[in-house]
Design a protein around this nucleic acid. Structure first.
Lengths: 256, 256
DNA sequence: ACAATAGTGTCTATGAGACATTATTGC
DNA sequence: GCAATAATGTCTCATAGACACTATTGT
């Protein structure tokens, strides 16, 4: 945005005398749903709350929007504080804004949630406000009583991630800088909770323009099996045609 | 969300003595991108600003988040004020939150944007704060200088709408309660800026489970041509397999 | 009669999915 | 040797897209 220039002296006076306090106070926080894959399980980063309210409960990492930052910058700052990753080391996108009037017992708090995806590398480090930080498999979260409405935010983040794997090359955000087709397939299988045919998956991925491209490095060996060719992310922002979740196909065919 | 219950007397005291004023003041507004199709053109509702800043400029309808409403309720209220439509008469979804620190010259203002889609019925009525309200074809908007960052918000809304037509039955939100397959096709053609083959479109729509279902009413005549069968929206929330934009297919095939 | 639209049928190319097959590794 | 993985090939079925064709309306 270009800088705003008042059109008249009258407007200048208006802006100079403007009093923000006349509106009901609203606090704005930025919370981050950080997803990664560890040991074949989709995990979310949670921190234990050190202060009231919900003291001692697990919650999403986050904090108040600081006065001269936009929300995305705040989200990157939270990520850096909790995990040490720098801006650009992960995928980060806005997830949604949560505004239920009673979602925070202190005062009216509106939370802008972000979704971050990153490879399994960074070890979480507890920030100022958090007594502890830990990755939890999302499958075990059903019974956990999280702070605020963070269970709903995580649920929305998981659905967003699963959906975006269909029509964007975002799955590469869960992999390291180079990866094999099998690495990529395991990401899909983990997020979608579906087994995929290795042969068909390979053919599909390689046929979508701009999804992946062969890496300069030769091959990678690990465990049993032939050595695998390695790839790096391609340039496409959208996958066309998309990969479609088998689970949805089955569900929707049943209810015509 | 269930009501929050403090766990201890200590926490009760904390909440009672909590002072919201210690945070930097942030104002939160809710703005609505209302799209409809008039005379074959995709149009967005704009209101002329009656006060500073950007006095006299066209802007999205919106207002400050009121203290006991969540943002979606505020968006419905804005819609009712500007167009008279009631909650449930249109499709409404959260679009995104805009947080650039200097996007409003008065003070820090965070805007939660909503996307609304509705059939061409409601005539806009000017609200309190707006001198005038009018539908503008989005194709003519490139040169218009809108208030705040509303040009970007509209752009994001258009992309969201085009994208959602692919994998949800949302196109029916632009139609009346009953519609013909051709009505639906014209919605896709207008939003996607693409001609679609009538025969293939019909076959595709009818083959996707839950997209549309035949209406009790017989047929509709209008202008030349045979009378058309009418349909009502189906029950599916997602289209599977989706309809894919021809424009994307062409673009992505060129850059492999 | 004519133009415009509704609706059906047909052909082809492509992609998805199921599955077999061969090659290469670690154990 | 054996199990596991990588990579390629084959077959079938469903779908998208192009397009011809008929039927029914308003003018």
């Amino acid at each position: 945005m270009s800088k705003y220039i008042p059109a008249s002296q009258e407007e200048k006076d208006f802006l100079a005398s403007y009093d923000p306090a006349k509106f009901a106070p609203v606090a704005v926080t930025v919370d981050v749903v950080l997803l990664t894959i560890r040991d074949g399980q989709l995990c979310v980063l949670l921190v234990r709350r050190g202060g009231y309210p919900y003291k001692g409960r697990w919650a999403l990492p986050g904090g108040f929007l600081s006065s001269r930052e936009d929300a995305e910058t705040s989200a990157w700052r939270e990520l850096a504080e909790e995990t040490g990753i720098e801006r650009g080391d992960a995928h980060l996108e806005q997830l949604g804004t949560y505004t239920a009037p009673d979602r925070d017992p202190r005062t009216r708090v509106v939370s802008i949630a972000y979704l971050a995806l990153l490879p399994d590398v960074a070890a979480p480090t507890a920030g100022d406000d958090a007594a502890d930080a830990e990755f939890f498999p999302v499958a075990n979260l059903r019974s956990a009583k999280l702070a605020f409405d963070h269970d709903q935010i995580i649920k929305d983040g998981l659905e967003r991630a699963a959906s975006k794997l269909e029509y964007t090359p975002l799955a590469t955000a869960f992999c390291g800088p180079v990866f094999t087709i099998s690495d990529l397939r395991r990401v899909y299988e983990t997020v979608w909770q579906n087994d995929l045919d290795p042969a068909n998956f390979r053919r599909k991925v390689l046929s979508v323009p701009g999804f992946v491209q062969p890496a300069a490095a030769a091959t990678r060996r690990g465990g049993p099996g032939a050595p695998a060719a390695v790839y790096v992310p391609g340039t496409a922002a959208l996958l066309h045609p998309p990969l479609l979740r088998p689970s949805l196909r089955a569900k929707l065919k049943d209810t015509p």
